[in-house]
Amino acid sequence: TTYKLIANGKTLKGETTTEAVDAETAERVFKEYAKKNGVDGEWTYDDATKTFTVTE
């Protein structure tokens, strides 16, 4: 399944996707990606669109 991340960070803005077996796995991947890019904010997830959003 393809999951999408929308990053609304102070230093990183944009979108990326990952293939994962479930939302929990995708969330781990995206949180690691955000951490590597210095983004720390509020996370939301929309199951209907398989989209995570992080906003600083």
Rank of each mutant, 00 (worst) to 15 (best):
F30E: 00
D46R: 03
T17F: 14
K31H: 08
A7T: 15
G9L: 14
T44E: 10
T25E: 14
E56W: 11
D47S: 12
K13Y: 12
G41Y: 03
W43R: 00
Y3E: 01
T1F: 14
V21C: 12
K50N: 07
A23I: 10
T55M: 08
T44G: 06
E19H: 13
V39T: 04
T11G: 11
Y3H: 02
E27Q: 10
D22N: 12
V21H: 12
D40K: 12
Y3M: 01
R28S: 08
F52P: 00
E32W: 07
A34H: 02
A34W: 08
T53L: 06
E24K: 12
E19M: 14
D40N: 13
G41T: 02
T53V: 07
V29H: 13
T25V: 08
N37P: 01
I6T: 04
L12P: 04
K13R: 12
L12V: 08
K50T: 03
F30T: 00
K10D: 08
Y33Q: 03
A26Q: 01
E42T: 14
D46F: 04
E24Y: 11
D40L: 12
A20D: 03
E56H: 07
A23C: 13
A34V: 10
A26V: 02
V21D: 12
A20I: 02
A34P: 00
V39P: 02
T1C: 13
K13L: 11
T11N: 13
D22C: 05
D47I: 09
E42Q: 13
T49C: 04
F30D: 00
G9H: 08
A26Y: 01
E32D: 10
E15A: 08
R28A: 11
T17E: 09
T53D: 02
T18Q: 05
K13D: 06
T18N: 03
D47E: 14
T1L: 10
T2Q: 10
E15Y: 13
T17N: 05
T51A: 03
L5H: 01
D47Y: 08
V39E: 03
K35E: 09
T16C: 15
K35H: 10
A26S: 02
K10S: 12
F30R: 00
G41M: 03
G38K: 07
I6R: 06
E27F: 15
A23G: 04
A20P: 02
T1W: 13
V39Q: 05
F52V: 00
G38M: 06
T53F: 10
A34T: 06
A34I: 07
K31A: 05
K50C: 06
F30V: 01
I6K: 07
L5I: 03
A23P: 11
D46Y: 04
